[in-house]
Design a protein around this nucleic acid. Structure first.
Length: 453
RNA sequence: GGCGGCGUGGCCGAAUGGUUCGGCAGAGGCCUGCAAAGCCUUGCAAAGCGGUUCGAUUCCGCUCGCCGCCUCCA
């Protein structure tokens, strides 16, 4: 059974799902008001890898990730641009899915939108008001944090310490600065919904509770997001569930930040690189490799040099894939090497240790090459198959074959003939021509293959 | 102020109480007509100071440096 670090207990524990063999996970998705940056790319890759891994391990995974399409920032941005907030959200949601596709992040099974869950949120608010956990002020409905058992669990702080450190703006009407809005009352000119609590819109923390419980049900298996969501967002989600006496996530998972130098990359610091910039300039697989080769809870530095490093590493993977593309399909009788698979699984089972998992993959690549060099085909193929299987489990799509223009193919054949005649001068001329067309020919046991120059 | 975490070879990233590991880059060699790809060999890593121990990079303490959360944030 895989184990994961649980933010709630601060230790690595078995994930032991609610229903054997099934795994339900909810990950906080984007607020669609602007271009996603590298941090968004990291978290989506981390949970994509988790999802792929659990599936590969035989779990039936149900993965829900929301789109926050109503929010103060969306409204503010839309106001600046003089467009409707709905249109802004729609536009950036399209941007989001486009980028996810480029990153080869598989679509969640369900992608609920906050605006489709307003009724459910209002029911929840009514329930919390009725039970006395929530109270009304002139501008909305607030949850009284002091009435929630164990508030501060995810922040690893007790209520008194949180309160003393609170930097939230003072609101005379709130019983505590930590109390948070469930429903924000607004004027009717603004974007909003009619409700028993007056015209307005939901608070941020409420939507995820409604959607997670509404889709996955009580006691779902895992709730994840970036570390900065642990507090207050996830804390406040949990608080609402507690206030309603519903069991919430069994397990909390938080990934580390993308760093810029010694600082966290973030919108507010303005030190971000957008995902689009990255993907326009780098093989998206290089970023995935980078994410996978550091532990998901560690900070991750991304620079041009580090990306270059990952790209070169990727070249090694592709070269390996090219070398084994044919023989692997020919030898359907050979199974992936079990020692390699087990080593990978052991690493991934222990808090999703993909760096060690990748190390096992690279070792298998070396063994496959070593064996192939010596003509030990079965050993080579078993290692190669294991490596290829594990790479796909990490979502790394290998480029094992390159389609070349007919012209290049003809030149390569001519070169092959020239070499057979031991006319090396001619062979080299053909190779130069191929290079001029943007390809490198490599000799192989069976003839030749190509890579991009 | 409270809480959590980090400091590993030229670079990035892991594991680990004793022999460590992966990638990238470097050096030498093998293979190749020459390349490419590949393989092999190679480099006295643990911020500092103490302590525990037969033995510490790994455990404990202190010092220094850095980061994150406590506000919107992946």
């Amino acid at each position: 059974m895989p184990r994961l670090f649980d933010t709630q207990s601060s230790e690595i524990v078995e994930i032991a799902p609610r229903v054997e063999g099934q795994f339900s996970m909810y990950v906080c998705g984007p607020t669609v008001y602007d271009e996603p940056h590298l941090g968004h790319g990291r978290f989506t890759l981390v949970y994509d890898i988790l999802r792929r891994y659990l599936r590969y391990r035989g779990f039936e995974v149900r993965f829900v990730s929301n789109i926050t399409d109503v929010d103060d920032k969306i409204i503010a941005r839309a106001g600046e641009l003089q467009i409707k907030p709905e249109d802004l959200a729609k536009n950036y949601e399209e941007v989001w899915w486009d980028l996810m596709e480029r990153l080869a992040v598989q679509r969640p099974d369900e992608t609920p939108h906050a605006t489709d869950w307003i009724d459910q949120m209002l029911e929840m608010v009514a329930e919390m008001v009725a039970s006395g956990a929530a109270y009304e002020t002139s501008d909305g409905i607030y949850l009284e944090v002091a009435r929630v058992d164990g508030y501060g669990l995810l922040a690893r702080q007790n209520l008194a310490e949180l309160r003393s450190g609170a930097r939230v703006e003072i609101d005379e009407q709130k019983k505590s600065p930590l109390d948070f809005a469930l429903w924000k009352r607004t004027s009717e000119e603004e974007w909003g919904w009619n409700s028993p609590f007056g015209f307005g819109r939901p608070g941020w923390h409420t939507e995820c509770v409604a959607m997670a419980l509404g889709i996955l049900g009580e006691g779902f298996d895992l709730h994840g997001g970036g570390m900065d969501l642990a507090f207050p967002h996830h804390e406040n989600e949990r608080a609402q569930a507690v206030a309603m006496h519903r069991s919430f996530a069994r397990h909390w998972m938080h990934n580390g930040f993308v760093m810029v130098g010694e600082e966290k990359m973030s919108k507010s610091l303005g030190n971000f690189t957008t995902l689009k910039e990255l993907l326009d300039s780098t093989d998206p697989r290089a970023y995935r490799l980078l994410v996978a080769r550091s532990h998901y809870r560690s900070p991750l530095e991304v620079t041009a040099e580090i990306l270059q490093d990952a790209s070169r590493s990727l070249e090694r993977i592709d070269a390996f894939a090219r070398r084994f593309a044919d023989v692997v399909t020919q030898r359907s009788d050979v199974a992936p090497n079990k020692v390699v698979i087990d080593g990978f699984n052991d690493a991934m089972d222990e808090d999703l240790n993909s760096p060690v998992g990748l190390a096992r993959v690279f070792e298998a690549i070396t063994k496959a090459n070593f064996a192939q060099d010596r003509g030990h085909v079965e050993e080579a193929v078993s290692n190669a198959k294991a490596a290829l299987l594990l790479l796909s489990t990490l979502g790394i799509v290998v480029q094992d074959r390159l389609e070349v223009p007919e012209e290049v193919m003809v030149l390569a054949k001519q070169r092959k003939a020239a070499r057979a005649d031991r006319d090396f001068a001619a062979a080299d001329r053909y190779r130069d021509e191929i290079l001029r067309l943007g390809y490198v020919v490599e000799d192989s046991d069976s003839g030749f293959r190509f890579k991009r120059a």
